[in-house]
């Protein structure tokens, strides 16, 4: 036989054999997937952030298809994703708009430092050295662990303070898990008044560390017409259910640590 013809025949034969083997294997090892799971997975954003409480978008889609999870748990997807999932499942879905906020206002100008930290530039590492380089033991360290973990680029470090851009934030909660000082919180989008301080230290201690800290003076509790502001352990907090966003507390606060959103 002609050597070229023989070469073609042998290579083609090997190719055919491999093809047949793969064809049989694809039948044999076929993975049966729930059609609903595939459809649900397609409408989810695919960020795998875990805000829904499942191991990722795949896990959430599988749980929804089984009927174990409600549609609308996906905060990054928002109302559109919730509606799309609801349509596939044949149920009404409501998604609450949520956002992320920072419970610290101690930027570089107002908050003092107790040390010149030159170690690994992450909050996690800095927090291990005597709680970080800030005088305030509760405040934002500003090395941007939250900004690094944010999948949407919504967090920036401005003047050594974590700042969330609400238009970009999808409330996935990655930053909340990352912050070693637990300063970030996921709140309903309707939240108005926010105390931008997390310090439970007594008034004089707070004032030495930061000029924008809450000293627990209770002026805000007195002026609030709704009784929404309470002070506990030298730190004010605002009940978002009662707050109407009138802004009286922000005006009364001597250190200006209350911000009104919206």
């Amino acid at each position: 036989m002609h050597p070229i013809l023989l070469a073609i025949l042998i290579v083609a034969g090997i190719g055919l054999l491999c093809g047949l083997l793969l064809a049989v294997a694809s039948r044999l090892f076929a993975v049966r997937q729930d059609e609903k799971t595939v459809q649900l997975r397609a409408v989810l954003p695919g960020a795998n952030c875990g805000a829904c409480g499942y191991s990722g978008c795949d896990g959430y889609a599988a749980a929804m298809a089984k009927g174990e999870a409600a549609p609308g748990l996906c905060t990054p997807g928002g109302a559109e994703t919730a509606a799309a999932c609801g349509r596939l499942l044949g149920v009404e879905a409501h998604a609450e708009i949520k956002t992320c906020l920072v419970r610290c206002g101690g930027c570089a100008q107002v908050a003092g430092k107790k040390a010149d930290y030159q170690g690994v530039p992450t909050c996690a590492a800095a927090a291990q050295f005597f709680g970080g380089d800030k005088l305030c033991a509760y405040g934002c360290l500003g090395y941007g662990d939250c900004a690094a973990v944010c999948p949407y680029g919504a967090i920036k470090i401005v003047d050594g303070l974590c700042t969330v851009d609400p238009s970009l934030c999808r409330a996935c909660g990655q930053c909340v898990k990352t912050c070693p000082k637990h300063l970030l919180a996921i709140v309903p989008g309707s939240t108005r008044g926010v105390v931008r301080c997390a310090s439970h230290a007594k008034g004089p201690v707070v004032l030495k560390a930061c000029s924008k800290g809450c000293i627990g003076c209770r002026k805000c509790t007195k002026v609030c017409p709704q009784g929404a502001v309470t002070v506990e352990d030298f730190l004010a907090s605002i009940d978002p259910e009662k707050c109407i966003g009138c802004g009286e507390c922000a005006k009364a606060c001597p250190n200006g640590c209350i911000t009104i959103f919206g």
């Binding site: 090997i14 190719g15 491999c18 093809g19 793969l22 294997a25 090892f29 993975v31």
Partner: peptide
């Protein structure tokens, strides 16, 4: 290359399953 490509496909199917 032909044989390795087919084998990798096979391994992929087995792993996926």
């Amino acid at each position: 290359i032909l044989i390795i490509a087919a084998l990798v496909q096979l391994v992929e199917m087995v792993l996926r399953k």
